Computed example of a mutant assay.
Amino acid sequence: MTHQARKRFGQHFLSDLSVVDAIIHAIDPQASDRMVEIGPGLSALTQPLLQRLDRLVAVELDRDLAARLRNQWPLERLEIVEADALKVDFGALGAGHQPLRVVGNLPYNISTPLLFHLMHWSDQIRDQHFMLQREVIDRMVAQPGDGNYGRLSVMLQVRYRMSHLFDVPPQAFDPPPKVMSAVVRMRPLPSDRLRLPRDPSVFEALVAKVFEQRRKMIRGSLASWVRWLDWDALGVAPTARPQELSVGQFLDMADALATAGVTNLAARSV
């Protein structure tokens, strides 16, 4: 049975076996792992994963592909969650089990929202291996001073240690996308390295606000809230641009605002 890739789902099916082998080698699945695959598609990763795993959970939105998978694998080996991954409770998938391992060739049109969605369960996840647009991965792993460093970098690096593993060319897919792809490894930071913001909503709003105008000095971007920020105590230059600040400095600024009782940055924006 053939399956026509559906543009509305952002489907590009991995077809290069050497790339499949490289991904499986990077994941190194063990039989007892509790693993979830997002977007199994035509089983390019599903099949080799099931050769290593006792059981796999697959999240698939396309009902035709979900039906195809049900016909290929018995329920005791492959559990199909037919749903939009952006609406899946990944915590429930791992309830009562060891930490989840999450893998997938993610649809590029939902990759960033999905990465943020998964952050809700980072304390229940062991690692994540994803195929994404390389441009997105460049932003995920970028460091201060890098032109790719931005909101996505800061928001993910506060929770994860990430590695760009290798690139994947368009011809590895059917149909080929118009962009270069890459594989990223995401591991939640251990408790002794994890520092969460005092008020996550303030942190999120602060990071979003300053990167709206990334060429602007942060004292200008934060004009409505500068009276709550002691630049010297924070060790932050008010003339700095956002791409020059570390994740820790963003945390320090957000915590200072939260301590001062500033809880609604969006309402105070200029």
Rank of each mutant, 00 (worst) to 15 (best):
M1G: 10
T2V: 10
H3F: 10
H3K: 11
A5K: 01
R6Q: 14
F9P: 00
G10E: 07
G10P: 07
H12E: 07
H12I: 10
F13G: 00
L14Q: 04
S18Q: 13
V20F: 00
I23F: 05
I24K: 15
H25Y: 09
H25S: 13
I27A: 00
Q30K: 15
Q30C: 11
A31N: 13
D33N: 14
E37Y: 07
I38K: 04
I38G: 07
I38T: 03
P40L: 05
S43K: 09
P48M: 09
R52E: 08
L56A: 01
D62L: 07
D64R: 08
L65D: 00
A67C: 06
R70H: 09
R70D: 11
W73R: 07
R77A: 12
I80M: 10
E82Q: 12
A83E: 12
D84F: 01
L86F: 09
K87Q: 13
D89E: 03
A92H: 12
A95R: 15
A95F: 12
A95W: 15
A95N: 13
Q98V: 08
R101T: 14
G104H: 08
N105T: 13
N105C: 12
P107R: 04
Y108D: 01
N109G: 06
S111D: 08
P113R: 09
P113K: 07
L115I: 00
L118N: 01
W121S: 00
D123T: 03
F130M: 08
M131T: 15
M131L: 15
L132T: 03
R134P: 05
E135S: 03
M140S: 04
A142V: 04
A142Q: 08
Q143D: 10
G147E: 09
G147D: 10
N148M: 05
L156S: 13
L156N: 13
R159Y: 09
R159V: 01
R161I: 05
M162N: 06
S163I: 01
S163L: 06
H164D: 11
F166H: 01
D174C: 10
P175D: 06
P176M: 06
P177E: 02
A182G: 11
V184W: 00
P188A: 02
L189E: 00
P190I: 00
R195M: 07
R195K: 01
L196A: 07
D199N: 07
E204M: 06
V207Y: 04
A208D: 12
A208S: 12
K209S: 08
V210R: 09
V210Q: 03
E212K: 11
R215M: 06
S224L: 09
W225E: 14
V226A: 02
A233K: 15
L234P: 14
V236P: 05
T239S: 11
P242I: 04
P242Q: 07
Q243R: 10
S246L: 04
S246W: 04
V247H: 06
F250V: 08
M253L: 07
D255R: 05
A256T: 11
G261E: 08
V262N: 12
A266V: 13
A267P: 11
S269F: 09
S269M: 03
V270D: 08
